[in-house]
Write a protein that binds this DNA or RNA. Sequence first.
DNA 1: AGCACGCCGACT
DNA 2: GTCGGCGTGCTC
Length: 748
Amino acid sequence: MMNADDLDRKPKPSDDDGAPAGAAIIVDVLAPLALDMVWSYLAPPELALAAGDIVRIPFGSREVIGVVWAVRSPGAIASDRKLKTVSGKYDAPPLPDGLRTLLDWIARYTLAPRGQVLRLALRHPEKLPPEAPRVAVAATGKLPARLTPARRRVLAALAGHREMSRKALAEAAEVSLTVINGLIDDGCLETHVLLDAPPLAPDPDFAPATLSDGQTAAAASLRAAVADRQFGVTLIEGVTGSGKTEVYFEAIAEALRQGWQALVMMPEIALTAQFLDRFAARFGVRPAEWHSGVSPRQRERIHAGVASGDIQVVAGARSALFLPFSKLGLLIVDEEHETAYKQEDGVHYHARDMAVVRGRIESCHVALASATPSIESRVNAMRGRYGHLRLPERYGQRAMPRLSAIDLRKQPPPKGRWLSEPLIEAARETLARDEQALFYLNRRGYAPLTLCRSCGHRFQCPNCSASLVEHRFRRALICHHCGHTERRPDACPACGEVDALVPAGPGVERLAEEVAGLFPGVPAITLSSDLAGGSERMRKELDAVAAGEFRIIIGTQLVAKGHNFPRLTLVGVVDADVGLATGDPRGAERTFQMLQQVTGRAGRGDAPGRAILQTHQPDHPVMMALLSGQSEQFYAEEIGAREAAGLAPFGRLAAVIVAGPDRHAAETHAQALARAAHAMPDVSGDIIVLGPAEAPLAIVRGMHRFRLLVKCARHTDLQGFLRAVLAAAPNPAARMRVTVDVDPQSFF
DNA sequence: AGCACGCCGACT
DNA sequence: GTCGGCGTGCTC
């Protein structure tokens, strides 16, 4: 977005510029470094700096980029030290007030240095070669002195057009650019710079969808909320195919009619050509698209367009939240429960929550959409903080899949096998109808556990104490937490017995073996993140599945979303209990969300889908919720259970300051604390463990040096929790200094 | 974050 | 005798 050539160089300071010393303008500049401070500089008056401007400043021995965070009132020279002078200003859109407020807010909330948060909004190449002006040519009417065949073709190709770009003309006339340049030199063609046409505006009335009654009502309510131009949040809840997208498209249409911008955030993987096409079908053009794969040049254009208002709608991953919108009027967070919204490195933020914050700052409406909302959003909806729109039915041809459960206690598969007779029978019927079946098992590898039959030795990761997972294809034992890999030995390392190691439990590889035995000759594919060949290969295989090349799919959570498999009518959940007893307080919520997603994939227009859950606990609230299609009860129980366990339904941040003069000792303490906190059974989420700091005020300044681990404590009794964590720490010298208790809502 | 300054080990 | 390791401190 910035370019060195855009830098307005400060004229050479002269002794007689006559400005009285007291009238010097001072600006406070924030640099995108891991520093929290703003730095004061003298501002050359001719740059006319304003808050938000992007400047270059001398900083220590180098020059860095910075953003004017504040312009000090004239005459207020606070510091007695000699100030350096701003070197120049970039001809780039300034950061709007709302965005700067958001960045400050996030820095405060996440305890991150402001400079580091600023990076989120400035993550662009500092220098780009200036964009080459695009040149168009038009005929002048003059005929060339020598009319060669090539020249004739050029003039003929241009005949129907007022102007064409040189490249397009050369292609159309099947000549090289030399011929065209020759004609320009002869004066037969004239050139002019082609101005960048503003992008085509999405048209709110291009092709409004036909909505069901329920959708119409929901859309009307959302439209009204948008037009209100006040901060508010609506949770849109509706199963896959219920038309959530169509409903929020109507909200976007309303924002467009009002002349406001809209941002649609989605998890990175959900931002597909399919979505962009759907948008284009409704509004006539694709939205601007923003994610990690967008080219630097395109980023620059989007920045400029969003700041000028030429771009009205952006669909983007979480980082799109930091674009310099000039008149944002609507934020939408699609698939709001997705964990991909959580940034876990650098600045730790949850993009869904920060979207709500930005909505608050911009005074506009925020819509959160999901088939399986997060507990947090549910609680907010239940307590009336968020509006709640439900779209309970599938619209159009697709019927909801029929769900049933198989009680594995009553109908267990034979020993060493994982598919029960009724599920196998259902798959047979499906295959006989020439349809596809999916066996879902969220376990990579061959077997999650390897045991020694002779001495009972269990293979464990040396770093994490988790079980090593056998990957038979790679002949390796792998830790799924840290990636530790070792060769699978033939003899037990504990007792030396040869050929005594047995796999315990199923993974997708083992399941594939069983499926191959049960359905010989039926084309099947196993899809997990272990698939060799990278995303390229994955895409190819998913396309092959969509085209019906495979009849049986065996997959991990990777198949739960994304690609549409049009012939898929049976989803068999091989072990619905995976993830329920892991000690993770979010286990039930996650399991429900995942199973709801994956079972929802069954069914197509003419063939209703079926989903079968194999479970040992058919009475578990998750299974009941899935089977009945009623999630109310489940959510209510989940919230109640969390409250009973002393867990807050909202995230909270806790900062533990480990005091001590010795940096290494402090790091060791902090890591031990983090581990101890992690191991506590009733805690999930994030704990910020900070290194030595002298006083609470020093946190912000000192924390960046010792940022060791950030995870978020979801705990109502924070003080008690921290005391417990500290009690578990090996060194009692570690002291708790500060806790920060932040419910995002409580900040307002 | 970068970058300089500073004080101890293996090389031309 | 120097090159270079990364520990510590500073940046308007």
